[in-house]
Design a protein around this nucleic acid. Structure first.
Length: 287
DNA sequence: CCGTTAACCTGAGAGC
DNA sequence: TGCTCTCAGGTTAACG
C-alpha cells in the first residue's frame, strides 16, 4: 500500500498519538504475516514505553529503552487504527488503504494503552513486525536500504556509479529498494514523468542530465506528496487527519488514454506492464 | 553477478 | 447469483 510519503504521514500520526505511551498489553491474533511474529513478541513489548517513532524508507520504527526497537512494515494492505477503550466503535484509521469494510478477521496485532488501543489490520498479510535488540542490529537491518530516496547519498555520483553498463530499465531501478529505498509503483511513474524519461530506458543509456533530473524530481515528488498528506486510492472516508490529497495531482498514474498534462505536449498517457507492475507514461514527452 | 519471473495472500470489480 | 479472470500502493526466492 504505502510508499515513503504515506508511511511518513502514518509515522506522524503515531508520533502524535502514542509517543511516551506505555504498552500495557500486546495481543497477537495471527502470527503469520510476511515473517512469522516471534513467540516472545508479546512479552518483549509488554510494559515498554514508546520513547520515539521514526521512519526510514517504508519502515516505521518504534523506539524503546536500551536500544530495543520494533520495525513495522505495512506491506501492500497494512493499516493502523486507534480504538477508544471506552467507545469501541470510535475507530480512527491512521492509514491509507481502505476497503469498504475492514473485517476483524484481518486484525492481527493489537497494542493496548491506558486510554486506547492500536490495531494492525492487513488482509493480504504482506506487512510485518520485527523486533530489534541493539543499535548494531538496527544499523545492519537498514544497511541494504541505503540510500533512501531523500538521503543525500542518493545523488549524481551514486547514480553514475550504479547505472553504469546496466541493462535494467530505470523504472525497475526506482522500484529496487536496494538501489534506492522508499519509492513504490505510483511514485516511480510520477517521478519519471517529471524527468521526461521513458520508464523502459536502460540504466546505461541515461546521461548526466537524465540522472540530475532523477535526483531532483525524486525529491520534488516525494516532498510534495508528503505536504499533500500522501496519496489515497479507492474510497476513503472517516479518516480524521489522515486523508491524502496527492492523488489529485497525479500526472500519469491511473490516467491511461488521457491527454498529457504538460503544456504544449500532445501526447497520450500509455499504460504498460513492467515486471507485472502497471506503469504509466506519456508517449510523447517521455523519451 | 545480473535481470526476470513466480510466488506469497485476500478482496474488489469486470465480464459472462 | 455465481463463476472466472484480472488487478492491487510490496517484497523476495528461485531460475536461466
Amino acid at each position: 500500500m504505502p510508499e515513503l510519503p504515506e508511511v511518513e504521514i502514518v509515522k506522524r500520526s503515531l508520533f502524535n498519538k502514542v509517543k511516551n505511551q506505555k504498552i500495557s498489553k500486546v495481543g497477537v491474533f495471527n502470527r503469520s504475516l510476511r515473517y512469522r511474529i516471534e513467540d516472545r513478541f508479546e512479552d518483549f513489548l509488554k510494559n515498554q514505553k514508546i520513547l520515539n517513532i521514526t521512519r526510514k524508507s517504508k519502515f516505521i520504527i518504534l523506539h524503546f529503552l536500551n536500544d530495543n526497537y520494533c520495525i513495522i512494515h505495512l506491506g501492500m494492505t497494512g493499516t493502523l487504527h486507534l480504538l477508544d477503550n471506552k467507545n469501541p466503535n470510535k475507530n480512527t484509521n491512521l492509514s491509507f488503504y481502505h476497503s469498504k469494510i475492514l473485517p476483524k478477521k484481518h486484525n492481527h496485532v493489537e497494542f493496548n494503552f491506558s486510554k486506547f488501543s492500536l490495531v494492525y489490520n492487513d488482509p493480504r498479510r504482506f506487512g510485518f513486525f520485527k523486533l530489534i535488540k541493539s543499535k548494531y542490529e538496527l544499523d545492519s537491518f537498514f544497511k541494504p536500504f541505503y540510500p533512501e530516496a531523500l538521503d543525500s547519498g542518493f545523488n549524481l555520483n551514486y547514480l553514475k556509479k550504479k547505472l553504469k553498463n546496466k541493462s535494467k530499465n530505470i523504472k525497475n531501478f526506482l522500484l529496487d529498494q536496494n538501489f534506492v529505498s522508499g519509492i513504490g509503483n505510483i511514485y516511480a511513474s510520477e517521478i519519471l514523468y517529471y524527468c521526461k524519461l521513458n520508464p523502459l530506458k536502460k540504466g546505461k543509456n541515461l546521461n548526466i542530465k537524465n540522472m540530475k533530473r532523477i535526483v531532483k524530481y525524486t525529491h520534488f515528488v516525494l516532498i510534495k506528496a508528503i505536504k499533500r498528506g500522501g496519496s489515497t486510492i479507492k474510497d476513503f472516508k472517516n479518516a480524521k487527519g489522515s486523508i491524502g490529497n496527492f492523488q489529485k495531482e497525479f500526472k500519469v498514474y491511473e490516467r491511461k488514454n488521457l491527454k498529457c498534462l504538460r503544456k504544449n505536449c500532445d501526447g497520450i498517457i500509455k499504460k504498460i506492464n513492467i515486471n507485472n507492475r502497471s506503469t504509466f507514461y506519456c508517449n510523447n514527452c517521455q523519451k
